[in-house]
Design a binder for these strands. Structure first.
Length: 481
RNA sequence: CGGGAUGUGGCUCAGCUUGGUAGAGCACUAGCAUGGGGUGCUAGGGGUCGCAGGUUCAAGUCCUGUCAUCCCGACCA
């Protein structure tokens, strides 16, 4: 039915992921026109299609953040060095990757100014001034911004000198209130990932070694990429009153007693786009889950200069506009070129319409996730299309979940641990004694880090996988981005 | 910050060993045909070879320096 063009030297545009996953990623990012490299090393230009993906994630997340009572604000890009110094662990954690402003014009500044790597201290400084009474609490702020971290090695979306994110900063009367907030926001992150981006997550707590600099504890949603490496997709931190004490953030309670506030912060970044690519993508390029796809269906007219084809295709586009996010490519590129282009961009469904279809009052639907084609009568299309999109959404989630399960193993000895990493990669469930030294050693010897201590605990052995002493808890381990 | 590599039209690269007035493919522009998996033909536009200095009658090519980027390791969302 589909005749193959004569001079068929189909140019493989992206490196096969089996051959070189890193190169595959770079190829997709470039060829799906998500980013260009910036002029300064490690920076990126997010192009229209890449930014459209970010806008969708942002809007979805923003809606949930607002629904849970938070308000958006905007704090400055700059932090004076003295302010950053106030919380000891925090500055120690971030100092190595801070970009400093030392001059204003030609004049050297009396105090260096830091370009924010994160904004905890600014919020703290503000809270110290603006929180007085228990009636002021909770203070639930969020901001959408860029931050800068001077990383040594960079990759688009996964690790760049500058990236976009949302950072929530909240202050609460009690430790329990803060704990609830921390958990609530993690659940929102999980919801966006699973139900919007079709990326299954592992919910858990970070070990002390991996927690945020200055936090009591850090909750995380961990995801698994197609190559078996883990990616931290969102974190939610409970600060207790550590920052409050460093910044003197206090309020008067109902009894007139002076109390420290309890704080949280939580963030998600443009890194999510990296996750999207590496979870759903394939050797033809991106695969975007329908719910978040800027364009859900692309109409490709066939033999479009033939009588009536384009008119019919435009009519179809108009009809579908109220039902799905649909677009039409009526450029005079070859159909084959368009097929490849929109597969590269991960558009969930392609609608082909040519003279033969028009004669039969049908169209051809081709789904991006499986490549399956089906013929659908025009009269049925308005029912079938939303259904198909939903199928694709579900299939992507199920597929990713099956992959993660398949790539999750149990290790009870370090030999097993090493063997799994070597042969299979993915998540490794192993017991841990709770000693930081064992965690360090495991990283040193295998380059795997602890990903999280899952909320749903189980026991796969009685002893620590490294030292053999009594095990305290189960930890998910893995090599990570 | 250690190890390796590379800088030549928008992109990918050839040219350098053995100096002699810059080349290909893709992309772009125009036209005709084509159109169910990256279409074909024809005609065009576009580069002083990362930067600085040196050797030479002559430097993309040789020498010195410098800057940048990429890949691999230690730190990170």
């Amino acid at each position: 039915m589909f005749h193959v063009s004569k001079n068929k030297q189909f140019v493989e545009k992206v490196t096969a992921m089996e051959d070189d996953f890193g190169q595959w990623y770079t190829d997709v990012v470039k060829q799906a026109e998500l980013v260009d490299y910036g002029v300064v090393r490690g920076t990126m230009i997010i192009k229209p299609y890449g930014y459209a993906l970010w806008e969708n994630i942002r809007d979805e997340l923003d809606r949930r953040i607002k629904e849970t009572g938070h308000t958006n604000v905007y704090f400055p890009l700059f932090i004076p060095e003295s302010l950053l110094q106030k919380e000891k662990d925090h500055i120690e954690g971030f100092a190595p990757e801070v970009a400093w402003v030392t001059h204003g014009g030609e004049e050297e500044l009396s105090e260096r100014i830091c370009v924010r790597p994160t904004s905890e201290v600014l919020f703290c400084e503000y809270y110290a001034k603006n929180i007085h009474s228990y009636r002021d609490l909770p203070m639930l702020y969020n901001q959408w911004s860029n931050v800068v971290r001077w990383e040594k090695t960079t990759r688009p979306f996964l690790r760049s000198l500058e990236f976009l994110w949302q950072e929530g900063h909240t202050a609460h009367a009690t430790e329990e209130d803060a704990a609830q907030e921390t958990a609530k926001m993690l659940e929102i992150y999980a919801d966006v990932l699973e139900n919007y981006m079709a990326i299954p997550v592992l919910r858990g707590r970070k070990t002390d070694k991996e927690k945020f600099a200055g936090a009591n504890y850090t909750l995380t949603v961990e995801t698994l990429m197609h190559d078996g490496k883990a990616l931290q997709a969102g974190t939610s931190h409970h600060f207790g009153d550590g920052f409050a004490k460093a910044f003197d953030i206090t309020y008067l309670d109902e009894n007139g007693d002076r109390q420290y506030v309890h704080q949280t912060s939580w963030g998600m970044t443009t890194r999510l786009i990296g996750a999207l690519i590496m979870v759903h993508g394939d050797n033809r390029g991106l695969v975007i889950p329908p719910r978040m796809a800027p364009t859900q269906a692309m109409i490709v007219p066939i033999a479009q200069h033939k009588e009536g084809v384009l008119d019919q295709a435009y009519d179809l586009c108009d009809e579908l506009k109220d039902i799905v996010r649909v677009d039409i490519d009526a450029s005079d590129k070859m159909p084959g070129w368009k097929f490849n282009e929109y597969e590269m961009k991960g558009i969930p469904v392609r609608i082909e319409m040519g003279p033969r279809d028009i004669a039969k009052e049908q169209v051809v639907l081709v789904r991006r996730d499986t490549g399956e084609k089906e013929f659908v009568a025009l009269a049925q299309l308005q029912n079938r299309l939303p259904q198909l999109l939903e199928d694709i959404q579900q299939n992507l989630f199920n597929r990713a979940l099956a992959h993660r399960n398949e790539k999750t193993s149990v290790a009870t000895t370090m030999d097993e641990f090493a063997k799994i990493l070597d042969e299979k990669s993915g998540f490794i469930k192993a017991m841990w004694c709770g000693d930081n030294a064992c965690e360090e050693k495991i990283k040193e010897e295998t380059s795997a880090t602890s990903r999280c201590i899952p909320f749903e605990q189980e026991t796969v052995a009685d002893t620590c996988v490294y030292c053999g002493k009594e095990a305290k808890e189960l930890v998910y381990w893995g090599r990570a981005y």
